[in-house]
Design a protein around this nucleic acid. Sequence first.
DNA 1: ACGATCGGTGCAGTATCCTGCACTGATGGA
DNA 2: TCCATCAGTGCAGGATACTGCACCGATCGT
Lengths: 201, 201
Amino acid sequence: MDASAETLARAIGERVKHERRALGWTLDRLAEHAGVSRRMVVSVEQGTVNPSVGTLLRLSDALGVGLPALVEPPASRASKLTRSGDGAVLWTGERGGRGMLVAGTEPPDVVELWDWTLHPGERHESEPHSAGTRELLHLLEGAITVEVDGQTHDLVAGDALAFLGDTDHWYANTSAEPARFSLAVFEPGVGAGRRNGEPDA
Amino acid sequence: MDASAETLARAIGERVKHERRALGWTLDRLAEHAGVSRRMVVSVEQGTVNPSVGTLLRLSDALGVGLPALVEPPASRASKLTRSGDGAVLWTGERGGRGMLVAGTEPPDVVELWDWTLHPGERHESEPHSAGTRELLHLLEGAITVEVDGQTHDLVAGDALAFLGDTDHWYANTSAEPARFSLAVFEPGVGAGRRNGEPDA
DNA sequence: ACGATCGGTGCAGTATCCTGCACTGATGGA
DNA sequence: TCCATCAGTGCAGGATACTGCACCGATCGT
């Protein structure tokens, strides 16, 4: 087990221990539920072993936290406040509409929260994001049309749409009033150490 | 290696192979970059072994995809439309405020988009979510106070706050007008098989 | 026809994951 | 005080992840 694997093992251990404590479980109980020896549970929690995915799967399953959550690198613990107007305006329409990124998380597993305003007649076409990207849109005011993967959806105020963002898609305001919506974008695992050199996909 | 571990191993194998192909790499090249024997690379891609996290870490690092992406189950491809008012109201305040879940993704990696209204004086205390949960809050109207992990933040309309949701936290409307905010909640890898029996956290 | 390269298999050896058990020390309740 | 329960350690042995090498068949360029 080399250095980076040890770091990972320790991080996994902390998470397992934290989850077990949160459930109020003893070592014996977790071992029994997971079908793993108690000795192994201790070793994993201490980060003194390099467990197989099979073992981790059993533990994460017993804890109910899902395997990816266990192997995720640690996230920063700080809260981050973005004051009104400090968001990044990453799109502006011809008639005053705009798309503003108001909050987001660090890689890996990027989640972004956007505040969009689309004036009548404006339309935004989005490049496909990376594989597995999902978007959640909640229309606050007005009416818009969303097309994703060839399917069009007409939304009115209050409607919400969940869709995959890894294909072509666009939003358009086809009504007479301005429209406003919140958009959550989730881009899984853009993380760690993407190498240079070769182009991707 | 039991049945579910075999399924996982095959899924991991497909992903490794897919990523290697996407980079146009040969087995030898991946083996060399990852510092893993070529024999092992083949075995992992075939899903015939139960690799250690250390081995997977080296592979994911060499491929530049991040370890969680390798162990993540595939997502469904459908769009889902929620009409106005069809969202699930999962909290109601004493004075008419409410928290409504308007859109969300399937496990694993749950992302939820909420629409919250907090009337003057109302306060919502949230149980800590599972480890790694992150929340993005965007205040649309009014003014609220958010406390997370002992820190309080005073927000006015337009402000946004990103924070970790795995500790105690609450939102309160301390102003004289109603407040409304969008909330994106990201809960990584709540996948697979959450057990029954014990309550969570 | 020939060599070079690639994906893939079979096998022996070794490194280590993993188990099972015995044990210690700390805590808490009757 | 005595007993039960808990977290954690040390160790021997079995199971298996992992390596290294030899080898096969298919494909491609000369």
